[in-house]
């Protein structure tokens, strides 16, 4: 994970000194109980977790051993829950949880399906297929064809414009940026940092192929982007 990449296995001397003052059991307690709990609670709304909030609400006086605490929390998420703790924004220090288990059709559905995922697929799909950036009008008119009208309350999504430009943006599924020097004001959409980690372009293209009854490879540029030659792409699951 990014957490481990940022903080190499060797502990800094500052952390070492911090660890000497508290017993390992205390650190464990701090990690396993509060940090993990805090992150699970904050993940209920899928808003990235900020390091500043973590320190303010749980880490507090243990902030000098923060890297060690995060390393242990990441290990707990991995070993108990099968989740990955990923730092999506290394500048502002924000974390998200993603699944590291491959999806498998089981006897009990993984979740009561969330219709927002369908809406996200449509928007992320259009952005991806159109090369990474689209003007907002393209999204609104696509949604309109799917009988989702901005400015009207939708049965399933309520205030769609708010959901897309506020909720999805805060969750970091989308970036919604003003295009400079436009009058009236215009915005464009890109994939957000969460989408980069959580959504598989290869699988998305597979679904496109199913929708269009077409070989995913026929979208050659998108196919190449979804299957980079080196295995350097971010993403929680191996994309074959």
């Amino acid at each position: 994970t990014v957490v481990e990449r940022k903080h190499p296995h060797e502990l800094t001397s500052q952390v070492q000194r911090g660890l000497e003052k508290v017993s390992p059991a205390q650190v464990d307690q701090k990690v396993t109980a509060e940090v993990v709990q805090f992150m699970l609670v904050k993940d209920q709304k899928k808003i990235p977790i900020r390091r500043a909030d973590l320190i303010k609400h749980v880490v507090k006086e243990y902030r000098n051993i923060y890297p060690e605490i995060m390393r242990r929390a990441a290990r707990t998420f991995d070993q108990v829950f099968g989740l990955k703790l990923v730092e999506i924004d290394t500048k502002n220090h924000m974390y998200i949880l993603v699944n590291r288990l491959e999806r498998a059709e089981g006897p009990v559905s993984r979740s009561p399906s969330n219709t927002k995922t369908g809406l996200l697929f449509v928007i992320l799909g259009v952005i991806f297929m159109k090369g990474g950036v689209v003007k907002e009008n393209v999204i609104w008119s696509t949604l309109k064809k799917l009988r989702v009208h901005t400015g009207e309350k939708h049965d399933e999504f309520g205030d769609v414009k708010k959901m897309v430009t506020d909720e999805f943006v805060r969750q970091r599924y989308l970036e919604y940026v003003r295009i400079p020097h436009t009058e009236p004001v215009e915005h464009e959409f890109r994939w957000g940092q969460r989408a980069d980690v959580e959504v598989s372009k290869a699988k998305m293209l597979e679904f496109m192929g199913q929708l269009y009854e077409q070989d995913p490879q026929s979208w050659s540029q998108q196919y190449r982007e979804a299957h980079p030659p080196s295995s350097s792409q971010a993403g929680p699951s191996s994309q074959r």
């Binding site: 108990v80 829950f81 099968g82 993984r110």
Partner: peptide, 14 residues
């Protein structure tokens, strides 16, 4: 193991 983790995730989601 991953079997336990998958079981836990499914109960968590439901």
């Amino acid at each position: 193991g991953d079997s336990h983790r998958r079981f836990l995730q499914t109960i968590m989601a439901n």
